[in-house]
Design a protein around this nucleic acid. Sequence first.
DNA 1: TGATCTGATGAGAGCGCTCCCACACCTCCG
DNA 2: CGGAGGTGTGGGAGCGCTCTCATCAGATCA
Lengths: 338, 338
Amino acid sequence: MTGARSTLEDVAARAGVSRATASRVLNGSPRVSDDARVRVEAAVAAIGYTPNRAARSLAVHRSETVALVVSEPSVRLFADPFFAGTTLGITGELGATRYQLVLLMTPSDADRPRTEDHLLHGGADGVLVLSARAGDPLPARLARAGIPCVVAGRPPAGAGDAVGFVDADNEGGARQAVAHLVERGRQVVGTVAGPSDMAPGVDRRAGWARGLAQAGRLAPADLVSEADFTREGGAAATRALLARRPQLDGLFVASDLMALGALDALRAAGRRVPDDVAVVGFDDSELARSADPALTTVRQPIERLGARMARLLLDQLERDAPPVGEVLSTELVVRRST
Amino acid sequence: MTGARSTLEDVAARAGVSRATASRVLNGSPRVSDDARVRVEAAVAAIGYTPNRAARSLAVHRSETVALVVSEPSVRLFADPFFAGTTLGITGELGATRYQLVLLMTPSDADRPRTEDHLLHGGADGVLVLSARAGDPLPARLARAGIPCVVAGRPPAGAGDAVGFVDADNEGGARQAVAHLVERGRQVVGTVAGPSDMAPGVDRRAGWARGLAQAGRLAPADLVSEADFTREGGAAATRALLARRPQLDGLFVASDLMALGALDALRAAGRRVPDDVAVVGFDDSELARSADPALTTVRQPIERLGARMARLLLDQLERDAPPVGEVLSTELVVRRST
DNA sequence: TGATCTGATGAGAGCGCTCCCACACCTCCG
DNA sequence: CGGAGGTGTGGGAGCGCTCTCATCAGATCA
């Protein structure tokens, strides 16, 4: 069954056809008689034949691989919550195709040129990019070189519409969160926003503002406090907010980790959650479930996001569809903190 | 620079040598004159030549890829904390070689045969396995087929010494944890153990027992309560323990997530942590840092584990070293819970 | 000085596949 | 009944590399 690998030649011989015909059958060409098709398929099954990827790649001038590039210096912080889920979605979608997923991580800036070079030299037929950095030049460069590319999150500014993307509906999620807080009767709803140079930070803040607007409220700047997606940052931002607006009774925090910091700060300030201040996070990470009180948060369809990325890339690769963007809706998970 | 891919032929022509000589230079053969070597290297640099993987694979009969198999039905629970870190370590080690990392996830049992088939048919030169299931037959099968294989954690029983492995020192870590609790003056040190059909569960429990033995204490069975690595399970196990041994004042919990459950149970029972009961977890996940009180825990060198897995595999692949096992030491991270 | 060895080199086959092209065979129409 | 237009098929070149083998120049020795 294993051992001496069998070749297409063997299959052809056994089926009593030429190598060319056997190849046609394997590639689903319509120009084959039913008779030949059946015999080749039987031979394949009997021999346990598996095509040689290398030979095929060499002949068709394609690697038949998709690269997953995780280009993030601080992999630890960023990757943990997303990586496993997204990857699972990607492999699920890719599993049915002949494409292989090869993993390229560039934790330090030093190894990015190598990766880029590799991809630009045909290292993969298509590329999926997982990166928090908005300014990543890689996708645009790949697209310019004619290599299909789909990024997670909003596409980098310079890329035009040449690169596909799949993003979670950050703004919509934030709006949901705010609507929920308003529904809970909160009067003064502030936000601990993410950094304004990161797309999710910007979008979630915008969602907060629009959410308030839709409720007929104002969204004054002094109800926004920016932090850096860390727990400590979240705590500090919350303290600042409380200092400026002691009446604060609702808080939308742009990530679960920062929300944990917010809970710290609120507790330190003697505010009860949710009685005095209701808090909503974002991400629905493990942290949210284990927080005290358990955090109401916005869940992103991580695995689905990976699957859609792969799908959009395959569309470009196989039916050379144009690169498109897609926004996946989020879901509010209500827990004890509101 | 990109565009029409250059071939070895081009390099050879430019360097004024034959394709064979150019190939020798690229593969570091000693049988090349310095003169030729220099000229070829210059040509490579000038042209921006990158070898064609497919052609090379075809010629050498090796795929020059390493597969990372994540064979876990409940990827969410298992993979999250380990996956990103381990993978990072692996890619770091592999980055300097010509091996590519291809990702194979088998979330459902249905797609495992496919994966196995692929690997058995030369899909990769070597395989790294990330799997919580002790009974996974894949590594042994691969080894039997002559495909080098390194697993994370203890090797499956059936594999003999044919598969390499890299494990964290679960027992040692547990001993450290217990020693720490004893040092803190705790008299009755119990444990919430993991399932006894999972290697980490068994090893950590053994470490708890040995730790007590080393301190000259007994490790009676009624100080052990088994759970399933979930938060709720940890809470239930802790309640059982408290019921049996109300004097309990030290607790080693075999995972951070279960430790969170233990904290819940202790709080519900009116015990203060660490005053009444000191608690140590295991994993040093994000959860430990964010717990209340922050959890003293045993850190595993996740990234290093990945790196060592890759290294051991490369040793088998390149210097055909025999498969070996390696145990990485863990580190106690002391926080507020003890 | 010729025989022998050594070390660098190039010619060329071959890895397993795809795909172009030519061919045989059939059907259909003028 | 001859030519046009399909179909299914096989021959064979070629993808870019490695590696064996023959060759050849130069060094070494008797």
